[in-house]
Every structure is written in C-alpha cells, then in structure tokens.
Design a protein around this nucleic acid. Sequence first.
DNA 1: AGGCTCATGTAACCGGTTACATGATTAT
DNA 2: ATAATCATGTAACCGGTTACATGAGCCT
Lengths: 189, 189
Amino acid sequence: MSLSFGILGFLNYKPMSGYDIAKAFESSLQFFWHAQNSHIYLELKKLEKKGYICGETVIQSDRPNKKIFSITETGKKGFMNWLAEGAGEEATQFKSSFLMKVFFGGNMTPAQSTDMLRKFKTDCEAYIKKMEDTPKSIDKYGYNKESYQTMYWQFTVDFGYSFIKNCIEWAERCIGKLENINEQYPKEN
Amino acid sequence: MSLSFGILGFLNYKPMSGYDIAKAFESSLQFFWHAQNSHIYLELKKLEKKGYICGETVIQSDRPNKKIFSITETGKKGFMNWLAEGAGEEATQFKSSFLMKVFFGGNMTPAQSTDMLRKFKTDCEAYIKKMEDTPKSIDKYGYNKESYQTMYWQFTVDFGYSFIKNCIEWAERCIGKLENINEQYPKEN
DNA sequence: AGGCTCATGTAACCGGTTACATGATTAT
DNA sequence: ATAATCATGTAACCGGTTACATGAGCCT
C-alpha cells in the first residue's frame, strides 16, 4: 500500500523508470521505507492496471531498453487524497522485534543482554554515518530543488537523526544500569 | 515470526491460554508489537505442531472451557536461540508511512502539512497518557516480580517514553519552521 | 577476463490483517 | 435487558520478502 504511494510521489515529480524509482528510494525514502526492486516492478504493474500511471517503452541503443512511467490525472488525485488523509494512528506505532528481545532480556545473562545493547549502539552509530553520506545523493536527484520541497526532506532527515541519537542515549542508560547491577552482584554474572 | 517468540516468551514464564496471552500482549508488548487475538490462536496451533508448546484442555463449569499451553524443552531452546541472536540490523530500521507523507509534504499546502503535524503531536500526547495507564496492569501479571526481570520491562517503557517525547519535540520544531515561512510569505498559504 | 551499472521481471512463500462466527457466564 | 468478560476459532486477502532468472554494455 505505502510503497505504491511512494512510487506515485516520485512520479509526481517527473516520469521515471522502475530502475530510477528504485534508485530514488535508496537515496531517500529508504530510511523509513525500504523497497525491494522486485516489489517496485510488481507495484508498477498494479498501478498501471489501475490507471494511476502509464508506461511507455523507450528504445536505447547504448543500454538496455527501459519503460518510462508517468502519473495520470487519476493517479494524481489518488496521491493527493492519500496525503490529505494526514497522520493516522499508525504514526505513533513503533513496531520492533528488538524491543521484544529487550523485554524478555531477563532470560539472558546480564553479559548477554549488555552485549546485545552494545551491538545495538554500534549499529546506531553506523546508521548515522550512512545517513551522513546520503544527503548528497538526494541533491543529485534534486526535483524542484528551488522550492520549499527540500524543507520537508530535511524534516525527515531531522527525524532520523534525533531518533537514532535518542536510541544511542537510551542504550547507554540501559548499559549503565546493567553495569551497576553487575557491580552489586558480581556472582550473578 | 516475532509473534511466535512473543508467545513463547510469555509461556516461558508460566502456562497460559490463548486468551491470557492476548491480555498479556495488550498490557505490555502491545506498544511495540501489536497482536490480533485471531493471529495468536493461529500461531499457537503452529507452535504446537512444531512441538514448541503443548496444550491441554481445562474443563470449567463456571466459564467456557479453555486450553492451557505449556512450553516444551524444544520450545525453550528455540526461544533461547532467538534471544541469543541478539540485535539484528532491523533494530535500527524505523518503518513509517507517516514520514513518507512528510517527505512528500511539499505537495500539500503549508496549512495542510501544519495540521498534519499538529495532529501527530496530539496523537503522541494521547499515546503518552495511554502508556502512563499501563504499567499498573503489567504489575498485575507480575511474573517473577522479585527478580531483575522488571528492569528489562522498564527499559522498554523508557524507550517508549523517550521515543514519543522525541516525536513531540520534532513535531514542534517542524511546526515552528512552517509558521516562520508563513510569516515570510503570507500569500502562499 | 571480471566486475560494475543499467534494466526488468517471475514464482513461491509467509507474516499479518480484516472480517466473520459463536456462545457461555457474570455483573449492573 | 444488556453490556462486559471469558473463550476460541475460520477464511479470504494482501503487502512484502526471498530466491531465482536474464542479459546488454561499459570500464579497468
């Protein structure tokens, strides 16, 4: 469902091929909506069937042929309606199997759970680095760069940063508490 | 996948019926893993088939009969292995269709996107209230309350709080920036 | 020769959601 | 009466993942 709106959103900027869309996802939406390229092609077919987009094959001599998709008026309406729906309840929902593991952490040894949290922290730090490398490639796509469009992209980047920083601080607090306990009851470890 | 480990985790504390498990989810894991009761019953069947749990029907005179499930040794092993895997890459992944809407916010009027962010903020505040009411019911279940088990529950609660607070602060920042722009270009609104 | 980028798909599977279906007992 | 709690399921669907499959052209 959401993937199709992501595709529509990109095609609303300009016509693109499935390959282009996959690239666009990778350098932006990826951080909060991962898209498999196989899934993108499937969704493009569905959207075409629905009349939301239409595709046109472009013959290329130097590269493999490609199919360029454009958004239709119906597609635009569908996309705008989705936007107009605004924030749903799912927005506050944070689904995480990792937190489920933390929840059941009492079944691990303190050493095990501390390791898990440390690994999580390291992963978060790696994630920040990955994010830092990405804005440059967003610029590369630069649809309507002049407009206030980019401000919204910045909002999502800002969210990502503060989310990850928050994760790191949380992990540090947890590790700290676990270390305290190990000092108090060294034999339990 | 994760649901089944959530079920195993609860049954690892003590034998329970499907109904009990559903209640347990509602008052704890719910905040980062929502479980439909229909899904729980399906998963219980699968786990039984797999030999991870075994069920026994209990005939009740005052209430409808129920089926109490216990975790087997195989089930315990499976659960412990899952825990031992530690934090995966998915832990840092934050999937959100709401952020996708924000990303495409440039297609809305500033008034529309401001409303969306304000709604999000209100939803977050409501979520905090919901969380504040829940710890009491976690106590009600109180498996191994004496042990350091509860510390891990507290970790997840802590995560939830700081996550939502972070969301609220982010939304305020965004709203502030949008209001600035409206002041600069009042006719665009 | 080997690896990268460009380019597009199919098939099987699976976790999870939605809707539907039933029915007893207890408390107000 | 009627609402709430206790109690368990089935069937259809669907969004998304994983694995598989192919192949041209470019750069080193």
